[in-house]
Design a binder for these strands. Structure first.
Lengths: 217, 217
DNA sequence: GCGAAGAATTCATCACGGTTGAACAACTAC
DNA sequence: GTAGTTGTTCAACCGTGATGAATTCTTCGC
């Protein structure tokens, strides 16, 4: 059926743009940027490939549009920074894991992360976003001489969780529960934010360090 | 000059395979996997594109060959794990930064990291490598009930440094010196390896935590 | 030396990727 | 009702990696 769709505009007013966006969103998240071709996507929607270019300019434009409707990290970050600074490490880790663990959010974020690695422009976007929305504000709240260093390192550690657990899926991180992660990574993040900075001089740092001995249980 | 390179085997015994590999190495590191096309590479070497397929099977085969001659992380890791466990965090960070900061090593590693994000098979390779060569052995040396969790989290933070400083180039991490990074990240890694694991119960964890107060200085 | 086998190299071609310009159909405004 | 705008397809372009056949050089058995 629907043997040969004639040329020209379709009758009625089906919102084809939205359809394309929906299907693209789904497939990008499932198959990644390179896995989706314009033609196959167009076929999925039941439309010519040129129409996608017509609406979104290019494949990258389409991808950007998909990201735009999927990812809004700024709100979450603002919420995090509003709360008590003392508990920020735990809350940050828990929020991050919760957000990334639910597919509706995690998939878009993951494809955004992957794309950012491949595409320098997208990387710059994320870089600036992290800076304005997270690092600078965090540094302000910490205060002190090395606030920027602490904030940067904090973000690095958080980024490491994303990278190893979600992008690379390294065990055991990939299958640890949110609680387990909070318990092991939380204290390290506390150290980064509030702990002493190591003595610059060349000392092995043996006894009398800030934390020592096997874990209590 | 060299107006039209005739068909067939070249006279003499020029090691074209090695030439291709050398140029490919250089260009892959500078321009990334997608930035290098078979034809442009072949033109650079002064050879037909089909010859690359002849020697390396495919573009990915070529890339794998380039990685093969560039990256040998196992040795470095072994050295790290041999030393004193107490000083492992500092040594690990310092070694990592030193290795990645010198272009001859850092560039190949960076392109490997980028490729691993895009290509699931390469990601699996790195994942297994990290596991066998680092996480398992580190967990053995730490000992204790949650050794695996600690080791995984340790690697996660190290990976975060790579991700944010080298792949994403987020400030201020990207321009911190090795010493600065060791000073801020080192203590956190110590906490991960040796510090207490946070109390599972729901407590804000306010006073009496393992590390508290502003930095000395 | 000679001729056959094999290795190295190019050429022509393929299928497929995203993108583009022209043709055409429907809807909107006057 | 006709003119203009918007939506849609078609055909083609050019660049990608890959492949098979044709060609030239090297090597080895005799």
């Amino acid at each position: 059926m629907n043997s040969s769709p004639r040329r020209g505009r379709r009758p009625g007013s089906p919102d084809v743009r939205a359809q394309i966006l929906a299907v693209a969103r789904d497939r990008f998240h499932r198959e990644g940027y390179d896995g989706v071709t314009m033609r196959s996507l167009a076929a999925d929607v039941g439309v010519d490939a040129a129409l996608i270019s017509y609406y979104f300019g290019s494949k990258r434009g389409l991808f950007a549009a998909v990201l735009d409707v999927s990812v809004h990290p700024a709100d979450v970050l603002a919420k995090l920074l509003e709360g008590d600074l003392e508990t920020l490490p735990q809350r940050a880790v828990r929020t991050l894991v919760m957000v990334w663990d639910q597919p509706e959010m995690g998939m878009p974020l993951l494809s955004a992360a992957r794309a950012a690695v491949a595409d320098p422009e997208l990387a710059a976007l994320i870089r600036r976003g992290l800076h304005r929305e997270l690092i600078d504000q965090l540094a302000d709240r910490i205060g002190g001489a090395d606030a920027r260093h602490r904030a940067g390192t904090f973000v690095g550690q958080i980024g490491g969780l994303v990278f190893t657990r979600y992008v690379l899926a390294v065990e055991p991180l990939a299958s640890m529960t949110a609680d387990e992660i909070v318990r092991t990574l939380g204290p390290a993040l506390r150290t980064t934010l509030f702990g002493p900075v190591a003595i610059p001089a060349r000392r092995p740092h043996v006894a009398g360090g800030s934390a020592r001995g096997p874990a209590p249980r």
